[in-house]
Design a protein around this nucleic acid. Structure first.
Lengths: 349, 349
DNA sequence: TTGTAGGCGTTATCAA
DNA sequence: TTGATAACGCCTACAA
């Protein structure tokens, strides 16, 4: 029965107890090849029995200069990020790779006030920054000296990055949707403005602010408009500040209550598209008969819907995996662009 | 322009550079009251300009014995936990409190093989263990020496805990549902067996294995059965190993395809209830006319459904907050039990 | 208010 | 294969 009240055992204590040097104990834990298997096993067994569970993490980290932790910086309040399927899949991808490499994941939110300090002070080997907002880019706390940083759904000068074909994807799906010759088109956009309100955007701020990926998608839509001879005014574009149902519902209601009711809704996320369909159905509109809706993301939840969703599928888990691999140096540092794929569902055949 | 290639500045370097002692620099960062505001500001400013961003985390942690990190141990693969609304809300609650206290959150999954080692080796001041499975309890890696541990949706000997009125909640909602005198009752249960398959359970394993909270809910249902003169066989009880749509759909399909089709489904989570309603509707059944469905959790997603869900609301965010407060010692250590509330929706009026 | 110095628990470089 | 020893960067008595 070990004394629980004693201060934690140190490697030195153990060495003394077992009559070997500290180096030997250390090697037993870290470098199996540096001593006989026999000795090693007996040491590990002894350690366990006397209640020494391995080297102190802080000390080891001070000595080696690495922590085995990567800070994942999410762009929203954690509540939003964590409840967002897309972000969850991304995190899953990261965690798959990190698990393998015995790395752990520290969650940070770029919504925090003193992010820069928090980042500097946090015990991590570096960061994976997930889709930060532009104004945050401007403040540029991202270039931490000596800390590996990977940008995801965004670009940071001097850092490797993973992005998705946002422009091409948006253009593809808009082209597909416009083949139905919709009478009126509206866009339910995500993070197009620096505000936390659901609102339309003004002509003069069309590509102004906006998270990088939203701007790219917007440009994609507009390219398709041009090719198809459409002209969409800013007043037919809504800004939804966060990817949550409540706000998406509001925007969808506003859009569908216009006198020139849209017959096509281009939604910048699947969640928004799902919300829009719900609103439409509640208003007695049939999808796709009365209204076409397309999304973006390809989240698995949408598989069970009726109507099923027409959307641009992106590889979220892969995005996470690649980000983690870049971080760990398992993959050559560069700017990765992931392909997207048009998935045709019932909401816009 | 600072030289990015130089090894990182240390507190000592800075002290030399500014012609003050290391203690002063340290105090400037950690103990504002130990020096004049004037001096402090000038020091901080200088530090920023020469590119010193504060004390090294590992060294500080070695010295002080604390890391400012709490390990959150999730019971499933991260992908499941992260995509689960209930877990996300819980994490949100935690992060709200931790943010305040300048603590960070390290994600661990109890699904990992060498969890015990990972936990020991990880740089955390302690753990919040979220609904671990019983067999894991048995292996009991939870009693880490000198590491504060809080149990959530479960109990760990000697640790403070946060739980929900699972028994009472389940009994309440079952009682409510049974007032409609359903002809046949089935239970779609969560984590009732130690398997990753969707399947029915056998009479002899009814309360056998099972995550603590599932057992409690099951007991609650059965108490209501007894009070209302119902008898429900094990073969009307399904095990769903993870709270995900795909598996829930499968179980719901199996249940609703029985010859004595259930007219009441008691679901151990809202997600399962939603899945069940989707399946029912796809089969042409009307809810609640042909089938009553009740859930458990009270997730916000369910607000937008048709029919709306009858469920037991539990305070997930609060659960996270309390767990974090217990962890931080902001709340007296004990076994907290959160109240639940019956929410009556259209799925079972 | 400021400076000095010892030690937190490891790991890595040697030499034995 | 093993053992001694010097960092790693910081915090905090304690002394000035």
């Amino acid at each position: 029965m070990t004394d629980k009240l004693m201060r934690r055992l140190t490697l030195k204590d153990v060495a003394k107890r077992l009559n070997v040097s500290t180096a030997t104990i250390s090697n037993a834990f870290n470098r199996p090849d540096q001593l006989s298997a026999e000795l090693r096993n007996s040491i590990l067994q002894e350690c366990e029995s006397i209640g020494y569970f391995g080297p102190n993490a802080a000390a080891r980290s001070l000595r080696t200069g690495r922590t085995g932790i990567v800070g994942v910086v999410l762009s929203d309040k954690l509540s939003f990020s964590l409840s967002d399927t897309v972000a969850s899949q991304f995190l899953q991808g990261i965690s798959e790779v990190l698990d393998e490499a015995e790395y752990n994941m520290l969650l940070l939110s770029s919504h925090e006030d003193d992010l820069q300090n928090r980042m500097q002070a946090s015990m991590v080997d570096g960061f994976i920054v997930y889709g930060h907002r532009p104004q945050q880019y401007t403040n540029a706390p991202w270039s931490m000296p000596n800390k590996q940083t990977i940008a995801v759904d965004s670009f940071i000068t001097g850092c490797a990055s993973v992005n998705v074909e946002n422009y091409q994807g948006a253009k593809t799906i808009a082209n597909h949707a416009l083949r139905h010759k919709p009478e009126h088109v509206a866009i339910l956009g995500l993070c197009l403005l620096d505000t936390d309100r659901v609102c339309r955007i003004r002509e003069d701020e069309l590509f102004d602010y906006a998270a990088a990926i939203s701007v790219q998608r917007l440009h994609g839509y507009f390219a398709a408009f041009e090719e198809n001879g459409y002209k969409v005014n800013a007043e037919n574009i809504w800004n939804i500040p966060n990817n949550v149902y409540k706000l998406a519902h509001q925007a969808a209601r506003e859009a569908l209550q216009m006198s020139d009711r849209p017959t096509l809704l281009l939604c910048m996320s699947d969640l928004i598209a799902i919300a829009a369909i719900q609103v439409a159905q509640k208003m007695g509109l049939r999808v796709p008969e009365d209204l076409h809706v397309v999304g973006f993301d390809g989240i698995p939840d949408s598989v069970n819907l009726h109507p099923t969703l027409t959307t641009i599928h992106q590889q979220n888990v892969a995005k996470g995996r690649i980000a983690a691999e870049l971080f760990l140096g398992q993959r050559e540092a560069k700017e990765e662009i992931l392909k997207t794929e048009l998935v045709i569902g019932e909401s816009c055949p």
